[in-house]
């Protein structure tokens, strides 16, 4: 029962914050809404029993990435953006029915799909050892290669971000500005 209440709380807060991310016009509020969403999603993870993922969500997402966004906002003078409308309103109105249809369709598919999906057994040793330990052992055995790949991707992403974002010497004249 406790879980239900926690889940409903986190879920409703997640959706509410997400709505804020989508609809608020001031970019500072949007960042704050995103931060709230990420924290609430971390709560969902804890409810589901995935403590490690939840912790990482808080650490990486809610702290590192959110700070990253804030940093970029300081680099880009967002005051200019305030002069313009923050949304495409016509497209939004036109897209809304499509979004509803998408919701209907996918939820229908999920509900039908869940009723025929197999039900697994909770393994005893997960409870004995605890979530973090088991995740770690699987991560470094079964998914070791994928883990290394991801680390490589992170490295490449870092180099790419540095190269893309660094200040270049003016080698060519920009025709559009």
């Amino acid at each position: 029962m406790m879980q239900w209440i926690a889940f409903l709380f986190f879920a409703s807060m997640t959706l509410l914050s997400a709505l804020g991310v989508v609809f608020l016009s001031n970019i500072i509020y949007v960042i704050l809404s995103l931060l709230s969403t990420l924290v609430m999603v971390a709560g969902i993870f804890f409810v589901a029993g995935a403590e490690l993922v939840g912790a990482l969500q808080l650490l990486i997402y809610a702290v590192a990435i959110a700070v990253f966004y804030v940093l970029v906002l300081t680099a880009v003078p967002w005051e200019k953006a305030l002069k313009k409308d923050s949304h495409y309103r016509i497209e939004g109105v036109l897209t809304f029915p499509i979004l509803l249809a998408f919701y209907l369709e996918i939820i229908l598919v999920f509900l039908l799909g869940v009723s025929v999906s197999p039900k697994g057994q909770i393994r005893e040793f997960i409870q004995n050892l605890g979530n973090t330990q088991v995740v770690g052992s699987i991560l470094f055995s079964k998914y070791f290669f994928a883990f290394e790949l991801v680390s490589l991707v992170l490295l490449v992403g870092m180099i790419g971000a540095v190269i893309v974002g660094r200040k270049e010497d003016k080698t060519y004249e920009d025709s559009t500005s």
Partner: peptide
């Protein structure tokens, strides 16, 4: 629901990739 852990591992990978995506994407925007 299934009593497995592979999904969490994928979630970890997704978090890592989201970090990369944010870094590169924001770099491009800058």
């Amino acid at each position: 629901h299934l009593g497995l852990l592979d999904g969490q591992i994928f979630a970890l990978f997704i978090i890592a990739l989201a970090a990369v995506e944010a870094a590169v994407g924001l770099g491009i925007i800058v």
